[in-house]
Nucleic acid binder design. Structure first.
Lengths: 159, 159
DNA sequence: GCAAATTAATGATTTATTCAAG
DNA sequence: CTTGAATAAATCATTAATTTGC
């Protein structure tokens, strides 16, 4: 199964169709547009049905819907209230990020502390000369078993 | 695709320096060696410190550490738990590959099928009722993904 | 009980990495 | 080495909950 039409051809994603065409924003100047403008700036608030559907999709494993997915999801969810493609897109982005954030532990502090305490590690600084392996590949046994047991005598190494 | 440089060959790199080739396991059974012995047989399980350090190094730009670098990293990380050179090497390999897969956005097809179905989605079916959204709608035509990366229209971010 | 003020959730933007292509 | 596409992280801003005072 291969599917990677994402990059390689057109990469533009016309999510919502942006129905407005070339003029995305045209501030309506009507007498009663005060409230309309306010509403125009209001942000999307998902209904219970919409939220349930989105959560259901997420729990089914969907994490980053493609443009097509977003279109279809939006089309269905529009039956339950106003919604746009970008809302769906943002929802998945935020939900994924925040779910991950809640579960993730902060191990960054350990890293900082570890590299700060002992003497400076020379591994981050590369010699001005060429890389130890110009081709960028380390001549290390590919198969695990080989690597595990291939601890042969190394050449001098330090020089 | 990436042309395979050269596998096999003779990767004579002493990642460990320890005799883990022929007789990797002959641990003297000390009172506290029970866990050590178990770890010796078990798969390497990075500690939080080790993982944080590796991630930190990766994020700092280190992608394919040389043998020397692997040695030094292993030496440092060993102070935080059992670890071998091959663990470090494999970790970088796996991590790099994993990052690459992450952006490939695979496994959309499954949900695509779900959304392609003509009948309403199982989770999107809602009981008959009036529109749950009394408010108007939000005319905010801005491409989601595209906008996120390209479009820079109105904003409030003050940096 | 209600309304204003404060806090918590969360939608919307911006910014910074990452891999891939030229 | 530079450029392009895409994402996830970090951030801002607005809405809903919650609290507080009357």
């Amino acid at each position: 199964m291969e599917a990677a039409p994402q990059h390689g051809g057109a990469g533009v994603i016309d999510l919502e169709g942006s129905g407005s065409g070339g003029a995305p924003l045209s501030p309506p100047l009507s007498p009663a547009s005060a409230a309309a403008a306010a509403l125009a700036n209001a942000r999307w608030n998902p209904t219970k049905e919409q939220l349930a559907a989105l959560e259901g999709l997420y729990e089914h494993g969907l994490r980053t819907p493609s443009a097509e997915q977003i279109k279809q999801i939006t089309a269905r969810l529009r039956e339950h209230g106003h919604i746009e493609g970008k809302n769906v897109f943002y929802w998945f982005q935020n939900h994924k990020a925040r779910q991950r954030q809640k579960q993730k532990q902060d191990s960054f502090a350990y890293f900082t502390r570890l590299l700060r305490r002992p003497p400076p590690l020379p591994m981050l600084v590369r010699p001005p000369g060429p890389l130890p392996y110009p081709h960028g590949r380390l001549p290390v046994p590919a198969p695990p078993a080989a690597a595990a047991a291939a601890c042969s005598s190394s050449n001098g190494g330090t020089h």
